[in-house]
Amino acid sequence: MADQLTEEQIAEFKEAFSLFDKDGDGTITTKELGTVMRSLGQNPTEAELQDMINEVDADGNGTIDFPEFLTMMARKMKDTDSEEEIREAFRVFDKDGNGYISAAELRHVMTNLGEKLTDEEVDEMIREADIDGDGQVNYEEFVQMMTAK
């Protein structure tokens, strides 16, 4: 299944994987998964984290390695993001709930994920998604960005 991913997608997933893999040992533990999910405003229980890991832990060693992570991402993409997942993601970014993602809100979430971005990089990300040019990202623009192939 992971063989249907483009090189660009694999590179993006590698970057995402390293955000989860806090200690850089090449595997994601339940603790690391929990840290990232909490930084995104989720509050999973230990059991939920274990279930999430077990779902993709092909070799049964209790952690997720990069090939397992790729399989999980490929699977998720095949079920292409349901509207509800996209709306949920939008809410994570839209901290003040005004229906727009500002540069400050984007920077806040990315920083929580451990991504240190310059102001230019954040502005560039907003510009790429900002179709109507108002300097922020509304829900429609967010959907376009998330579903762009």
Rank of each mutant, 00 (worst) to 15 (best):
I126S: 13
F13P: 00
R87H: 10
T80R: 08
P67C: 03
D21A: 03
Y139I: 03
L19K: 15
F90Y: 11
T118S: 11
E48S: 05
D94R: 01
A89N: 02
A129G: 11
E85H: 04
T111D: 01
D57C: 06
G34R: 12
K78I: 12
F93L: 11
K149T: 07
E105G: 11
F66I: 06
D57Y: 10
R87C: 11
T29P: 11
Q144A: 00
L40Y: 01
R107E: 06
Q50G: 05
E124Q: 00
M146K: 05
D96K: 15
Q50M: 01
S102P: 07
F93V: 10
E46H: 06
I53C: 14
K22M: 05
F13W: 09
K78T: 09
T45N: 08
R107K: 14
A47E: 14
F90A: 05
D96C: 15
E120W: 10
G24N: 05
T118A: 12
A129W: 04
D94E: 03
V36G: 08
R107A: 14
S82V: 08
K78F: 00
F13Q: 02
Y139S: 04
G62Y: 01
K76D: 07
E124C: 15
K14I: 00
R127Y: 04
L40V: 14
L5W: 03
A58G: 07
R75V: 00
K78W: 01
D57N: 12
Y100P: 00
L33F: 14
R127P: 01
L117N: 02
D23C: 01
A16M: 12
T80L: 12
M110L: 11
T45Q: 15
E46C: 01
E55D: 11
N138D: 12
A47D: 08
F90E: 12
D3P: 08
Q9Y: 13
E12L: 03
T118R: 09
E85G: 10
E46F: 03
R91P: 05
N54S: 09
D79E: 10
K14D: 12
D81G: 12
Q9R: 12
S102C: 14
Q50K: 13
I28K: 07
Y139T: 04
F90V: 01
N98P: 03
L117C: 05
D96Y: 04
T27C: 02
D51Y: 09
M110T: 10
R38Y: 00
L40I: 15
F17N: 02
G133F: 04
E140M: 13
T6M: 14
E115H: 12
D65Y: 13
M77W: 08
T111R: 01
M125V: 11
N43C: 07
E46K: 06
K116G: 15
Q42L: 12
G99A: 05
V36D: 09
T27S: 11
M146Q: 09
M37Q: 09
P67G: 03
E115A: 06
F93C: 04
K78Y: 10
S18R: 14
S102L: 08
T35M: 02
A58R: 02
L70E: 00
L5A: 05
D79V: 08
L49S: 09
F69W: 03
I53F: 11
A89E: 01
I28R: 13
K14R: 09
A89W: 06
D94W: 02
V122G: 12
A148W: 14
F66L: 13
T35H: 05
E85R: 13
E88W: 14
M52R: 07
L33E: 00
M72L: 14
R75F: 06
F142V: 00
D23L: 00
I86L: 15
E128W: 08
A148S: 06
I131D: 00
H108Q: 11
F93R: 04
F66S: 10
E12D: 13
E7F: 12
L40H: 15
K14V: 01
F17P: 00
K116I: 13
L117W: 00
T63N: 05
Q50W: 07
A103W: 01
L113A: 02
L70M: 11
V109N: 01
N138C: 15
D59Y: 08
V137N: 07
L70P: 00
F142L: 06
D65T: 15
E85S: 00
E121W: 02
E48D: 14
A104N: 03
D119Q: 02
G99D: 13
S39G: 06
F142S: 00
L33P: 09
E55W: 13
I28P: 00
L40F: 03
R38A: 05
D57E: 13
E124H: 05
D3R: 15
A89M: 08
D65V: 12
V137C: 13
E128K: 08
M77N: 04
A148T: 13
E46Q: 13
R127G: 11
N61H: 01
V109L: 00
F142Y: 11
Y100H: 13
D132R: 03
V36H: 00
Q42R: 13
A104M: 12
E124T: 15
A11D: 13
E84Q: 08
N112Y: 09
K95S: 15
M37V: 13
E124V: 12
K14P: 01
E141A: 03
Q4R: 12
G133N: 09
V56K: 15
A58C: 01
D94L: 09
E7V: 10
E124L: 01
K31I: 12
D132L: 00
R91F: 05
N98S: 09
R107P: 02
E120Y: 13
M37W: 14
K149I: 08
E128A: 14
S82C: 15
M146E: 06
M145N: 15
I126D: 06
G62P: 01
N112A: 03
Q42A: 01
D94M: 03
T27R: 11
I126P: 00
P44M: 01
D132C: 05
R91G: 02
